[in-house]
Design a protein around this nucleic acid. Sequence first.
DNA 1: TAGTGGTCTAGACCACCTG
DNA 2: AGGTGGTCTAGACCACTAC
Lengths: 226, 226
Amino acid sequence: MKRNILTNHYRAGKLLPTQEELANKYDVSRATINKALKLLENERLIYSVQGSGTFVRQRMQENSSELLPFDYPVGVTYSHRDQEIESKILLFDISFPSQEIKEKLALKDDEPVYEFKRLRYLNGKIHSLEHTFMPISIVTLNEEILKGSVYDYLGSEAKLKLTDARRIVYSSESDKEISQAFHIKEGSPVLVIEQLAFDQTGDIFEYSSSYFPNEKTKFVLDIHLN
Amino acid sequence: MKRNILTNHYRAGKLLPTQEELANKYDVSRATINKALKLLENERLIYSVQGSGTFVRQRMQENSSELLPFDYPVGVTYSHRDQEIESKILLFDISFPSQEIKEKLALKDDEPVYEFKRLRYLNGKIHSLEHTFMPISIVTLNEEILKGSVYDYLGSEAKLKLTDARRIVYSSESDKEISQAFHIKEGSPVLVIEQLAFDQTGDIFEYSSSYFPNEKTKFVLDIHLN
DNA sequence: TAGTGGTCTAGACCACCTG
DNA sequence: AGGTGGTCTAGACCACTAC
């Protein structure tokens, strides 16, 4: 479908031609035009008022490149950009999970889990410290894989795709390990993001906590209500 | 449309009847069924595989009530629940904005703005400190209105509806004012959420910074990729 | 009252998955 | 090869807005 309808001709807060006219112009049915306009509406480029017409919205300012998107897990985002993620592995282990981790991962059986900690570098600079748990039934891991993107590996090897995630964000005091890793004072603020990752069928395959140094890292989210 | 298709009969990771069968059963066209299923898919209740069929997903765990939704501005959410928001007004002023605020609000002319600070209580407990800027052209405010929900007032008086927002979240050290308001030590961590609020036409009508006490407040967001 | 977008129908063709 | 979901068409009716 042509979403170039907009970017081509129309600007400012003006009205668009009626769906009927657009249908004729592009030689498709009105239902198709309607669907295309709905997509543009979801992208917040236009808005429609029943009985009035369809209008072009003010352009929302672009995201600053210093802001990280909150609705994309790290590693998903940055494999698609110029950014480069590297990892230093601080811990790599297999063990039976604690009750807490077992509940987080919604494990039924007494299944061992991978546990690993990675210090992550974005474009050569320290970015975050990540502490991850993953059931061993998902895939076989080794340290070499951890240096790259685990998600990419899961996609290629286990045909597993991250489609959903639940992220919990809060502020906390850095403990000894974190303050040393970030070269900051113990007790100074860090941002924490806990994440549960789900595959297409709705199963949990990962629980992780990521720690970000104070003030250095800001996350942005664009919200659409209704 | 009936989205009860699911909650009624079908459970677990099973297949649903074909769209054809459902169309007959509910006596609607397949296009309508398809649309309804797409809605259910957006709610993450089902997923479809072309050529195979439509499956019921594992049920995602419910949100804990202690977690605040990150994708709903405070005041939008809590007017719709049992929760009660109260405000203590710390500051209410009108002035010409600084260059920074002017840019945030994307003001073209030299228009005065409201500036106010509110200490917000959720169910009687201190919840956050909010610092807000709003152009005076939007609506006429007074302290009485600030005690309630500004968004509700905007909806009823200015026919203005918050449809979009951009939120930026990070961790910071509390300054003197914040630490006193929260009864915490100066310099201890707080969570900061900056918010730009947009109306339907895409115009910015509010810029605010909200501060939340460390560890007490956690925000949750469910992410859907693709 | 006229014109707009919102929605639904009945039918068709295609791409994809499974046997 | 057969069955599935994905998509599009042409037409219709309704709800809402503006005049």
